[in-house]
Nucleic acid binder design. Structure first.
Lengths: 238, 238
DNA sequence: AAACCCCTTTGATGCAGGTCATTTGCGACT
DNA sequence: AGTCGCAAATGACCTGCATCAAAGGGGTTT
């Protein structure tokens, strides 16, 4: 749980490198300032530290400032399901709005920092800032469409297609953050990838090996180099 | 596309049997009246008629008044993916908010009627009615959590578990509408069920037959009688 | 540096569900 | 009553991925 001390208080949304990703572009400067005032910046989280756990009271949504976060749920039988991977500039925690408590848990996959945006204050602010309200409607709608894309992926596509699609998704999101779209480090383990995509670790590993053999990728542990974007896109049925 | 003539103009949200499902409970009477004024009621749609198609401009969200609606998307290769089934009192079309156009299509599975709620007017209204804003945040969040449950179902559960879960979901939603939770008519075809759950028609059919043999269900075409709720719940992993 | 742990890779085998093909049943139209 | 058409059921076979088992790094601890 990010402590709401003025740690990193020098950081302002106005100056944050990620602000084009997590804030509505249409915001006026003084509006950014008002939003900035409600955002709480937590101390850095290290690997495996939770932002919130399943059953925690829902109080806020979060933006990734650095590092990477995964969300997951646990069903009655104790089986975990990874529901999303979040990279810097992306918002998570919106699953909790419908209920008073979080359905999912969120955990840092590596040393990470997140901004906490208290939801009740966000709601109040939205009332006087229509563009902010619209922005959050859009963010939630995007979450819905991306979940639906995952549903399609899981119910219609083979292991190779699923993994190609995930790699391209990470590639595209890296591009948005002005990082390389062809060389990057996967923040998550093979087990997380398999869990997220409905596959076993062994299958994930085999597909990576096959992709390497087919010259689609260079894989070195978590370091990925995409060598044949069109080839992957074809697999991903784009 | 529902025609916005004053067809069925006598219907008012205030009197609608479904209003406890699609409206926020906290709404004052005059607030219901203001919402009622922006809601457009379309003529009845018959089977296979579209509410909107993929690529249509996003203008509104919709509530099912009677009948049943399915939403689906079509990927680049022309493969359909059913993304949801919506029963009376339920809201659909929220996937379009993020973009200016609908990602999905929505089609009537039987003769149906829907209420159209123009989104821009809903946004305006939300600004003066905080409980309405909160209601729509919650609706979207619910859509997210239910999509995530489907993701878990698809990536972790067997054909039998998936179908048991779908039947119990429809059963529970019928109960909310004061209909029988044990005897009902499935509005969708076996093909739709299979498509939604990531299974082939044959598998769906076989599982229905097996459930019947195990005395879990009586199946007569689309008429379902659940004979062993606890048995199904156990399969569905509670 | 040895011991340990955890993540990943690779191989061998089995099965749930897909694919293909045929049959059955029912409603609509003539 | 007969024919067409479509949804659903059933059977035979096949395959992609899971499962089980084992072994190979790389990092951390002592």
């Amino acid at each position: 749980m990010p402590v709401s001390c003025p740690h990193n208080a020098e950081i302002n949304c106005r100056d944050c490198r990620m602000n084009t990703l997590c804030l509505p572009i249409a915001l006026e400067l003084d509006e950014v300032e008002r939003l900035n005032e409600i955002v709480q910046r937590g101390r850095p989280l290290h690997r495996d530290e939770h932002v919130y756990s399943s059953g925690n009271e829902f109080k806020a949504v979060y933006a990734v400032r650095s590092g990477s976060i995964k969300t997951y749920s646990v069903n009655d039988k104790g089986v975990e399901q990874v529901t999303g991977f979040y990279l810097p500039g992306e918002i998570f925690g919106m699953d909790g709005i419908a209920h008073t408590h979080h359905a999912n848990a969120a955990v840092a996959m590596e040393t990470s920092a997140v901004c906490e945006i208290p939801f009740s204050r966000l709601e109040d602010l939205s009332i006087t800032m229509p563009s902010l309200q619209r922005h959050f409607f859009k963010l939630m709608s995007k979450e819905i469409t991306s979940d639906q894309q995952l549903i399609t992926l899981l119910s219609k596509n083979s292991a190779e297609e699923r993994i190609a699609t995930l790699l391209l998704s990470i590639s595209a999101r890296n591009a948005k953050r002005n990082l390389s779209s062809v060389r990057f480090r996967l923040p998550m383990s093979r087990a997380d990838i398999g869990n997220y995509l409905g596959l076993t670790v062994e299958t994930v590993s085999r597909v990576f090996s096959r992709f390497q053999k087919q010259q689609l990728l260079n894989v070195d542990k978590k370091e990925i180099e995409i060598r044949d974007v069109p080839g992957l896109q074809e697999l991903s049925n784009s």
